[in-house]
Amino acid sequence: MNALPSQAQLTQQIAAIREFNRYYTARLGLLRKRHLDGEFALTEARILYEVSAQPKVTASALQETLELDAGYLSRLVAGLIRRKLIRRVSSDTDAREKPLLLTATGQKAVARLNEQSMAHIHGMLAHLGTAEREALVASLAGVRALLEDRQQAPLRITRLTAPNDHALAILREYYEAVHVVQRDKPGSIQQLIDEPASGLWLAYRGDEVVGCVVLRKLAALSRASECKRLYVKPSARGQHIADKLLDAQEAYARSQGIEWIYLDSYDDLKAAIALYEKRGYERCERYNDNPQATVFMRKYLGP
Protein backbone atom coordinates (compact mmCIF):
# COMPACT_ATOMS: atom_id res chain seq x y z
CA MET A 1 0.00 0.00 0.00
CA ASN A 2 1.33 3.45 -0.89
CA ALA A 3 2.08 5.67 2.09
CA LEU A 4 0.20 8.95 2.21
CA PRO A 5 2.44 11.98 1.63
CA SER A 6 3.10 14.34 4.48
CA GLN A 7 1.70 17.85 4.24
CA ALA A 8 5.23 19.17 3.54
CA GLN A 9 5.71 16.65 0.70
CA LEU A 10 2.31 17.44 -0.80
CA THR A 11 3.00 21.19 -0.67
CA GLN A 12 6.35 20.64 -2.40
CA GLN A 13 4.75 18.47 -5.11
CA ILE A 14 2.01 21.01 -5.79
CA ALA A 15 4.61 23.77 -6.04
CA ALA A 16 6.65 21.70 -8.53
CA ILE A 17 3.61 21.13 -10.76
CA ARG A 18 2.66 24.81 -10.61
CA GLU A 19 6.21 25.77 -11.56
CA PHE A 20 6.11 23.43 -14.56
CA ASN A 21 2.71 24.85 -15.57
CA ARG A 22 4.20 28.33 -15.64
CA TYR A 23 7.09 27.06 -17.75
CA TYR A 24 5.16 25.16 -20.42
CA THR A 25 2.32 27.69 -20.80
CA ALA A 26 4.91 30.29 -21.74
CA ARG A 27 7.06 27.85 -23.76
CA LEU A 28 4.10 26.68 -25.85
CA GLY A 29 2.82 30.21 -26.38
CA LEU A 30 -0.45 29.57 -24.51
CA LEU A 31 -0.37 33.02 -22.88
CA ARG A 32 -0.53 34.88 -26.17
CA LYS A 33 -3.76 36.59 -27.14
CA ARG A 34 -3.94 34.58 -30.37
CA HIS A 35 -2.95 30.92 -30.69
CA LEU A 36 0.31 30.61 -32.69
CA ASP A 37 0.00 34.35 -33.35
CA GLY A 38 -2.80 33.54 -35.82
CA GLU A 39 -6.46 34.55 -36.10
CA PHE A 40 -7.90 32.37 -33.32
CA ALA A 41 -7.84 32.34 -29.56
CA LEU A 42 -6.57 29.04 -28.09
CA THR A 43 -10.04 27.76 -27.15
CA GLU A 44 -11.43 28.60 -30.59
CA ALA A 45 -8.57 26.71 -32.22
CA ARG A 46 -9.19 23.70 -29.98
CA ILE A 47 -12.90 23.64 -30.86
CA LEU A 48 -12.04 23.69 -34.56
CA TYR A 49 -9.59 20.85 -34.03
CA GLU A 50 -12.17 18.71 -32.19
CA VAL A 51 -14.81 19.29 -34.87
CA SER A 52 -12.23 18.32 -37.50
CA ALA A 53 -11.17 15.18 -35.61
CA GLN A 54 -14.74 14.15 -34.75
CA PRO A 55 -17.08 15.12 -37.61
CA LYS A 56 -20.65 15.56 -36.33
CA VAL A 57 -19.49 15.94 -32.72
CA THR A 58 -22.26 17.36 -30.52
CA ALA A 59 -21.96 20.45 -28.33
CA SER A 60 -22.59 18.30 -25.24
CA ALA A 61 -19.75 15.96 -26.19
CA LEU A 62 -17.47 18.97 -26.80
CA GLN A 63 -18.35 20.34 -23.39
CA GLU A 64 -17.45 17.01 -21.80
CA THR A 65 -14.16 16.71 -23.70
CA LEU A 66 -12.99 20.28 -23.15
CA GLU A 67 -14.48 20.65 -19.65
CA LEU A 68 -15.90 24.07 -20.49
CA ASP A 69 -18.86 25.95 -19.07
CA ALA A 70 -21.88 25.30 -21.31
CA GLY A 71 -22.69 28.99 -21.78
CA TYR A 72 -19.10 29.89 -22.64
CA LEU A 73 -18.85 27.04 -25.14
CA SER A 74 -22.17 28.04 -26.70
CA ARG A 75 -20.94 31.60 -27.25
CA LEU A 76 -17.70 30.40 -28.85
CA VAL A 77 -19.52 27.96 -31.14
CA ALA A 78 -21.99 30.66 -32.14
CA GLY A 79 -19.09 32.95 -33.02
CA LEU A 80 -17.43 30.29 -35.19
CA ILE A 81 -20.75 29.69 -36.94
CA ARG A 82 -21.13 33.42 -37.65
CA ARG A 83 -17.64 33.38 -39.16
CA LYS A 84 -18.77 30.47 -41.38
CA LEU A 85 -16.10 28.13 -39.99
CA ILE A 86 -18.47 25.47 -38.65
CA ARG A 87 -22.13 24.66 -39.25
CA ARG A 88 -24.87 22.68 -37.54
CA VAL A 89 -26.37 19.63 -39.26
CA SER A 90 -29.13 17.11 -38.49
CA SER A 91 -28.26 14.17 -36.23
CA ASP A 92 -28.53 10.59 -37.47
CA THR A 93 -29.53 9.34 -34.02
CA ASP A 94 -30.87 12.17 -31.84
CA ALA A 95 -33.30 14.76 -33.19
CA ARG A 96 -32.60 17.08 -30.25
CA GLU A 97 -28.92 17.40 -31.06
CA LYS A 98 -27.43 19.48 -33.88
CA PRO A 99 -23.95 18.06 -34.51
CA LEU A 100 -21.17 20.26 -35.83
CA LEU A 101 -19.21 20.05 -39.07
CA LEU A 102 -16.44 22.18 -40.54
CA THR A 103 -17.31 24.30 -43.54
CA ALA A 104 -14.90 24.49 -46.48
CA THR A 105 -13.53 27.69 -44.90
CA GLY A 106 -13.17 25.90 -41.57
CA GLN A 107 -11.28 23.01 -43.18
CA LYS A 108 -8.78 25.45 -44.68
CA ALA A 109 -8.40 27.19 -41.31
CA VAL A 110 -7.70 23.87 -39.53
CA ALA A 111 -5.14 22.95 -42.21
CA ARG A 112 -3.34 26.25 -41.54
CA LEU A 113 -3.47 25.67 -37.78
CA ASN A 114 -2.02 22.18 -38.17
CA GLU A 115 0.84 23.49 -40.33
CA GLN A 116 1.60 26.27 -37.84
CA SER A 117 1.49 23.89 -34.87
CA MET A 118 3.73 21.34 -36.59
CA ALA A 119 6.27 24.05 -37.41
CA HIS A 120 6.14 25.42 -33.84
CA ILE A 121 6.74 22.01 -32.22
CA HIS A 122 9.41 21.16 -34.80
CA GLY A 123 11.30 24.26 -33.72
CA MET A 124 11.05 23.23 -30.05
CA LEU A 125 12.46 19.76 -30.79
CA ALA A 126 15.17 20.88 -33.20
CA HIS A 127 17.97 20.88 -30.58
CA LEU A 128 17.10 17.41 -29.24
CA GLY A 129 18.56 14.14 -30.44
CA THR A 130 16.50 11.09 -31.37
CA ALA A 131 16.81 9.45 -27.96
CA GLU A 132 15.91 12.69 -26.18
CA ARG A 133 12.79 13.18 -28.33
CA GLU A 134 11.69 9.61 -27.63
CA ALA A 135 12.25 10.14 -23.91
CA LEU A 136 10.19 13.33 -24.02
CA VAL A 137 7.28 11.64 -25.81
CA ALA A 138 7.39 8.69 -23.39
CA SER A 139 7.36 11.08 -20.42
CA LEU A 140 4.32 12.92 -21.78
CA ALA A 141 2.50 9.61 -22.28
CA GLY A 142 3.35 8.64 -18.71
CA VAL A 143 1.98 11.88 -17.29
CA ARG A 144 -1.25 11.46 -19.23
CA ALA A 145 -1.68 7.85 -18.13
CA LEU A 146 -1.16 8.75 -14.46
CA LEU A 147 -3.73 11.54 -14.56
CA GLU A 148 -6.33 9.83 -16.75
CA ASP A 149 -6.42 6.65 -14.67
CA ARG A 150 -7.51 8.72 -11.68
CA GLN A 151 -9.88 11.11 -13.43
CA GLN A 152 -12.27 8.70 -15.12
CA ALA A 153 -14.29 6.29 -13.05
CA PRO A 154 -14.41 2.72 -14.38
CA LEU A 155 -17.40 1.63 -16.45
CA ARG A 156 -19.81 -0.72 -14.69
CA ILE A 157 -22.59 -2.70 -16.43
CA THR A 158 -25.42 -3.78 -14.11
CA ARG A 159 -28.51 -5.92 -14.74
CA LEU A 160 -31.34 -4.54 -12.61
CA THR A 161 -33.52 -6.60 -10.30
CA ALA A 162 -36.00 -3.73 -9.81
CA PRO A 163 -36.70 -0.40 -11.56
CA ASN A 164 -34.98 2.64 -10.07
CA ASP A 165 -34.93 6.38 -10.71
CA HIS A 166 -31.78 6.06 -12.82
CA ALA A 167 -33.46 3.56 -15.14
CA LEU A 168 -36.64 5.61 -15.50
CA ALA A 169 -34.65 8.79 -16.20
CA ILE A 170 -32.45 7.35 -18.94
CA LEU A 171 -35.39 5.55 -20.55
CA ARG A 172 -37.26 8.89 -20.68
CA GLU A 173 -34.19 10.48 -22.27
CA TYR A 174 -34.10 7.66 -24.84
CA TYR A 175 -37.82 8.02 -25.62
CA GLU A 176 -37.43 11.74 -26.30
CA ALA A 177 -34.21 11.30 -28.29
CA VAL A 178 -35.72 8.90 -30.83
CA HIS A 179 -39.39 9.97 -30.48
CA VAL A 180 -40.63 6.60 -29.22
CA VAL A 181 -44.42 6.22 -29.36
CA GLN A 182 -44.80 2.87 -27.56
CA ARG A 183 -43.24 3.55 -24.15
CA ASP A 184 -42.75 1.30 -21.10
CA LYS A 185 -44.48 2.09 -17.82
CA PRO A 186 -42.83 1.37 -14.44
CA GLY A 187 -45.08 -1.67 -13.89
CA SER A 188 -44.20 -3.16 -17.27
CA ILE A 189 -40.50 -2.58 -16.57
CA GLN A 190 -40.73 -4.68 -13.38
CA GLN A 191 -42.54 -7.39 -15.33
CA LEU A 192 -39.81 -7.26 -17.97
CA ILE A 193 -37.07 -7.61 -15.35
CA ASP A 194 -38.80 -10.61 -13.75
CA GLU A 195 -39.55 -12.45 -17.01
CA PRO A 196 -37.12 -15.22 -18.07
CA ALA A 197 -34.74 -14.39 -20.96
CA SER A 198 -35.46 -10.68 -20.44
CA GLY A 199 -33.79 -7.85 -18.55
CA LEU A 200 -32.66 -4.25 -18.29
CA TRP A 201 -28.99 -3.26 -18.14
CA LEU A 202 -27.56 0.11 -17.12
CA ALA A 203 -24.05 1.39 -17.80
CA TYR A 204 -22.60 3.42 -14.92
CA ARG A 205 -19.59 5.71 -15.05
CA GLY A 206 -19.02 6.22 -11.35
CA ASP A 207 -22.47 7.11 -9.97
CA GLU A 208 -23.78 8.43 -13.29
CA VAL A 209 -25.88 6.31 -15.63
CA VAL A 210 -24.56 6.80 -19.16
CA GLY A 211 -26.34 4.06 -21.11
CA CYS A 212 -29.00 1.36 -21.15
CA VAL A 213 -30.29 -1.63 -23.10
CA VAL A 214 -33.32 -3.92 -22.74
CA LEU A 215 -33.83 -7.59 -23.61
CA ARG A 216 -37.42 -8.79 -24.05
CA LYS A 217 -38.50 -12.43 -24.56
CA LEU A 218 -40.41 -12.94 -27.82
CA ALA A 219 -43.35 -15.20 -27.09
CA ALA A 220 -44.18 -15.72 -30.77
CA LEU A 221 -40.72 -17.02 -31.70
CA SER A 222 -38.93 -20.06 -30.29
CA ARG A 223 -35.72 -19.44 -28.33
CA ALA A 224 -35.75 -15.78 -29.30
CA SER A 225 -35.58 -12.44 -27.48
CA GLU A 226 -35.58 -8.84 -28.66
CA CYS A 227 -32.98 -6.11 -28.16
CA LYS A 228 -34.67 -2.80 -27.27
CA ARG A 229 -33.86 0.66 -25.89
CA LEU A 230 -30.14 0.69 -26.67
CA TYR A 231 -29.01 4.20 -25.77
CA VAL A 232 -25.80 5.99 -24.73
CA LYS A 233 -25.79 9.59 -23.57
CA PRO A 234 -24.18 11.96 -26.11
CA SER A 235 -21.50 12.99 -23.61
CA ALA A 236 -20.40 9.36 -23.18
CA ARG A 237 -20.29 8.28 -26.82
CA GLY A 238 -17.08 7.17 -28.47
CA GLN A 239 -16.11 4.96 -25.48
CA HIS A 240 -17.55 1.63 -26.80
CA ILE A 241 -20.24 1.66 -24.12
CA ALA A 242 -22.92 0.41 -26.54
CA ASP A 243 -20.72 -2.59 -27.34
CA LYS A 244 -20.24 -3.37 -23.66
CA LEU A 245 -23.99 -3.18 -23.04
CA LEU A 246 -24.64 -5.53 -25.95
CA ASP A 247 -21.90 -7.89 -24.75
CA ALA A 248 -23.60 -8.17 -21.35
CA GLN A 249 -27.01 -8.64 -22.96
CA GLU A 250 -25.82 -11.38 -25.33
CA ALA A 251 -23.94 -13.25 -22.59
CA TYR A 252 -27.09 -13.32 -20.47
CA ALA A 253 -29.24 -14.38 -23.44
CA ARG A 254 -26.94 -17.34 -24.11
CA SER A 255 -27.15 -18.35 -20.46
CA GLN A 256 -30.94 -18.45 -20.83
CA GLY A 257 -30.84 -20.71 -23.90
CA ILE A 258 -31.67 -17.94 -26.37
CA GLU A 259 -30.46 -18.66 -29.91
CA TRP A 260 -31.69 -15.53 -31.74
CA ILE A 261 -31.83 -11.86 -30.79
CA TYR A 262 -34.09 -9.69 -32.94
CA LEU A 263 -34.40 -5.92 -33.11
CA ASP A 264 -36.23 -3.22 -35.00
CA SER A 265 -35.08 0.26 -35.96
CA TYR A 266 -35.77 2.86 -38.61
CA ASP A 267 -33.80 4.16 -41.55
CA ASP A 268 -32.77 7.50 -39.98
CA LEU A 269 -30.76 5.78 -37.21
CA LYS A 270 -27.81 5.06 -39.50
CA ALA A 271 -25.16 4.98 -36.77
CA ALA A 272 -27.13 2.46 -34.72
CA ILE A 273 -27.78 0.25 -37.75
CA ALA A 274 -24.07 0.32 -38.64
CA LEU A 275 -23.24 -0.79 -35.09
CA TYR A 276 -25.68 -3.71 -35.28
CA GLU A 277 -24.31 -4.80 -38.65
CA LYS A 278 -20.77 -4.68 -37.28
CA ARG A 279 -21.85 -6.97 -34.45
CA GLY A 280 -23.31 -9.58 -36.81
CA TYR A 281 -26.95 -8.57 -37.10
CA GLU A 282 -28.52 -9.22 -40.51
CA ARG A 283 -31.69 -7.85 -42.13
CA CYS A 284 -34.78 -10.02 -41.78
CA GLU A 285 -38.54 -9.92 -42.36
CA ARG A 286 -40.84 -7.83 -40.17
CA TYR A 287 -41.54 -9.73 -36.96
CA ASN A 288 -43.69 -7.23 -34.99
CA ASP A 289 -46.30 -4.49 -35.45
CA ASN A 290 -44.19 -1.52 -34.29
CA PRO A 291 -45.58 1.37 -36.41
CA GLN A 292 -42.30 3.33 -36.26
CA ALA A 293 -40.01 0.51 -37.39
CA THR A 294 -38.74 0.26 -40.98
CA VAL A 295 -35.68 -1.94 -40.43
CA PHE A 296 -35.74 -5.43 -38.91
CA MET A 297 -32.63 -7.42 -37.98
CA ARG A 298 -31.59 -10.55 -36.12
CA LYS A 299 -28.41 -12.18 -34.82
CA TYR A 300 -27.76 -15.89 -34.30
CA LEU A 301 -26.15 -16.64 -30.94
CA GLY A 302 -25.87 -20.38 -31.44
CA PRO A 303 -27.26 -23.29 -29.39
Rank of each mutant, 00 (worst) to 15 (best):
E226V: 08
E226M: 06
C227N: 00
C227I: 12
C227V: 14
C227M: 15
R229E: 08
L230I: 15
L230F: 04
Y231Q: 04
Y231A: 01
Y231T: 02
V232Y: 10
K233A: 14
P234H: 11
A236G: 08
A236Q: 03
Q239L: 13
Q239C: 07
I241L: 11
I241N: 07
I241F: 09
A242S: 14
A242E: 13
L245S: 11
L245Q: 08
L245C: 09
L246M: 15
L246Y: 04
D247A: 11
D247C: 02
A248K: 05
A248H: 07
Y252E: 11
A253C: 12
S255H: 11
Q256W: 00
Q256H: 06
G257D: 03
G257C: 03
G257M: 05
G257E: 06
I258Y: 06
I258W: 06
I258V: 15
E259H: 15
E259P: 00
W260G: 00
Y262W: 09
Y262A: 04
L263F: 04
L263W: 02
L263I: 01
L263A: 06
D264M: 05
D264Q: 13
Y266W: 15
Y266T: 02
D267Y: 12
D268N: 08
D268P: 04
D268Y: 11
L269R: 11
L269E: 06
K270R: 14
K270Y: 00
A271C: 01
A271Q: 13
A272Y: 10
